[in-house]
Design a protein around this nucleic acid. Structure first.
Lengths: 227, 227
DNA sequence: ATTACTAGGCTCCGAGTAG
DNA sequence: TCTACTCGGAGCCTAGTAA
């Protein structure tokens, strides 16, 4: 059975948009060529081939050529469109990171415990984080690269604030799942002290205990992405 | 600006289905080749070209190759899918016929006036047709061909019936618009006395009068098609 | 003005193969 | 195993041109 050639997609698409599903539409090969950004000669060949493979019906009367898409041609287009559509819709809507638990400096714990942050955490993510963040080192390059996406994503924004001494930067939170089971939040700091290879997680309770983790444990983090 | 090559559609589609929108996915060129029905070599080339044109990001570590679709690549796919989708959805959902009014033999009027038919007309299309059908000759081949589609379409079915003499065949009705304004019905007879070049219309009132037509008048008939 | 043939070039593919 | 190079052949495109 003759398959629909990939280079004929645009031709069929154009014919379809001209109403060639139900009616014979009259066109010239040069206008078709313009529309599919090919030469008149190519357009002519396309029509000949499409007819040969029974994707279109062609009627020639005098200098006019009229074309109608067959049900076979139409269903091929539907099939193709469905494949595309599906691949666009059905990608997993989460980002997956893998890494190794490492011990932080305790800095995270200090900052996240500040009143200026905790008040916002309570109202915006619904809990006051357990004092102490979970640091995860992303071992593979692919995960270090993946984390970069969050810079452009919005998440839940914890605003910066100041006390008499200094200003504390904003924090972005992304609800996440640790090891496919435990709810937590990935946090991105405006002023971070480490590069893309380490991420920080916060949670209501002590993650090290609830997830039974210790330094060196391998962990998986999934963060849903609202497209 | 480098355009997305048409032959790369399937590759991108496959990567997308593997989740390469948000995450770097690790693949081999031979598995990709299998999936897009090309050779390993072609798959390799595809990835190289896609990377060159910034439709994907590629990370190579050791023998593994990880791939992620860029926002540019993604939007190209969305664009393409939208074009296809639109051309599939937006075709005019009616069949248009043009022809010339001719005088019938009066046969239509006789048959359609039979009780066995009129009773069904009343209940199924809501009126008893004016006695006398309007015959239209389809002058162009494209319209003669277009009419063939109705053989496979359902329409409103008027059943066959018998009296003591003979059996009268079924009739299919398709609601139509004459000259873009007057409601009527296209009828297709099981046993017709003419070929594809002539169609018959029925209406509540006398079409010749309401549409101010005489033999030789050019008419346009539009029949909606429920896809 | 058309459509569509031929000729030639350019692209794309895959077999062979190196690393 | 893997990626990706070269290269020959097949297929696609366009310029020129006939009808």
């Amino acid at each position: 059975m003759p398959e629909l050639k990939i280079q004929h997609i645009l031709t069929l698409s154009y014919l379809l948009s001209k109403g060639a599903k139900h009616n014979y539409v009259t066109i010239t090969t040069s206008s078709l060529g313009k529309n599919i950004k090919k030469s008149q000669q190519s357009a002519s060949k396309h029509l000949l081939e499409l007819e040969q493979n029974q994707f279109i019906d062609r009627i020639i009367s005098g200098r006019n050529i009229s074309v109608k898409i067959t049900s076979k041609g139409f269903s091929e287009m539907v099939k193709l469109s469905a494949i595309l559509q599906k691949s666009l819709d059905s990608f997993p809507s989460h980002i997956e990171l893998k890494g190794t638990l490492i011990s932080g400096m305790g800095e995270g714990a200090y900052y996240m415990g500040l009143k200026g942050y905790t008040k916002q955490f309570k109202s915006k993510i619904g809990y006051i984080p357990f004092p102490g963040t979970l640091n995860v080192r992303l071992d593979q390059k692919i995960h270090q690269e993946a984390i970069k996406q969050f810079e452009t994503l919005d998440g839940i924004k914890i605003k910066s604030f100041s006390d008499e001494k200094r200003t504390y930067g904003w924090v972005k939170c992304f609800p996440a799942k640790l090891n496919n089971s435990i709810n937590c939040d990935l946090i991105l700091l405006e002023r971070t002290h480490h590069d893309n290879s380490v991420i920080e997680l916060i949670s209501k309770s002590c993650l090290r205990k609830t997830a039974k983790l210790k330094d060196g444990s391998k962990v998986t983090i999934k963060i849903p992405v609202n497209i």
